[in-house]
Amino acid sequence: MQLTPEKRRQWGRWAIGIAGFLVVWTGVAMVFPLLPSPWPPFYWALPVHGRVVDADTDQPLAGVAVVANWELRDTAWTGSPIEEIAVMESVTDEEGSFSFLWWRPRVRWPITGVLRSDAPMLLFFKNGYTREFCHNSFAPFNRNPFPSSNCNGRTITLKKFKGTTAEYAKAFWDLDRSLRFLGVGRAARRCEWKNIPHMLAALHVQQELFRKEGVHSGLSPLETLSNKSLCGSVEQFLQGYLP
């Protein structure tokens, strides 16, 4: 890939900024050794790509919404989530392919947070299919500034659901739980849910199908994800993504 002069200058500014940040943070850590470890000062995740196929036919699945979440956990004994350093979405093409690429490093902030070891958490969903997850193995924390994903290069299989509508509805409890972070804390204030419109549109369609058949599901109302005064209405935002 040939870089333009403007792109070279931009990368140069990033390099100078990162170097300066490292110097300042390391100096502060030396003066105040009881502060949380300054390493790593940033994260710049390696690319993640893969394919999604139908479990029965082994044919590629297009239109699968894939959400990737890189979450920071508190280094204190609670280990509770404190920040999403990145929330991204990809939609599979006709070949079933998806990809995620970080175009820039992201500062690790707050410094009490470290990337959870199983990040990124990948969530796969397509209407009529069961959801799937893919993530790294669990370990205390990930201090590698260039984290990779064990899901990179893998083929993910989705199974078409063959039970009743009521049985299908029960399968959404853990999917709903996996997305609740979007409606609380910094993720809510930064309107992170707007980063995954295709996933939310698919869930909206599924909620409407359940409602028409009078079936209760484990899906929370999508409007609970948004602070309307800051981010507006979820349903209005999704109008351009609904079939």
Rank of each mutant, 00 (worst) to 15 (best):
S97R: 14
S97L: 09
S99D: 12
S99N: 14
F100L: 02
L101E: 04
W102Q: 15
W102E: 15
W102L: 05
W103N: 14
W103R: 11
W103V: 15
W103F: 07
R104F: 12
R104M: 11
R106L: 10
V107E: 09
R108E: 04
W109Y: 13
W109N: 14
W109C: 07
W109S: 13
P110C: 04
P110W: 13
I111Q: 11
I111C: 01
I111E: 07
T112G: 05
G113S: 02
G113W: 03
G113N: 01
G113D: 01
G113M: 02
V114Y: 04
R116L: 03
S117A: 14
S117C: 15
D118F: 09
A119F: 01
P120H: 12
P120F: 10
M121G: 06
L123G: 11
L123P: 02
L123D: 05
L123E: 03
L123S: 06
F124V: 04
F125E: 00
K126C: 11
N127I: 04
N127C: 07
N127S: 08
Y129M: 12
Y129T: 11
Y129V: 12
T130L: 11
T130V: 05
R131S: 08
R131M: 13
E132K: 15
E132G: 05
E132T: 12
F133G: 06
H135A: 14
H135G: 06
N136D: 08
S137E: 13
S137D: 06
F138I: 12
F141Q: 02
F141H: 08
F141N: 00
F141G: 01
N142C: 07
R143Y: 03
P145C: 14
P145T: 05
P147E: 00
P147G: 09
P147M: 09
S148I: 01
N150K: 05
C151Y: 14
N152E: 03
G153S: 11
G153E: 06
G153D: 06
G153K: 08
T155Q: 10
T157A: 15
T157R: 15
T157K: 15
L158W: 10
L158N: 06
L158D: 10
K159S: 15
K159H: 10
K160M: 07
K160A: 10
K162T: 06
G163H: 05
G163S: 02
G163A: 02
G163V: 01
T165A: 07
A166Y: 02
A166I: 03
A166F: 04
A166N: 02
E167Q: 09
Y168I: 02
Y168N: 08
Y168Q: 12
A169C: 03
A169Y: 10
A169K: 12
A169P: 01
K170L: 04
A171S: 11
A171D: 01
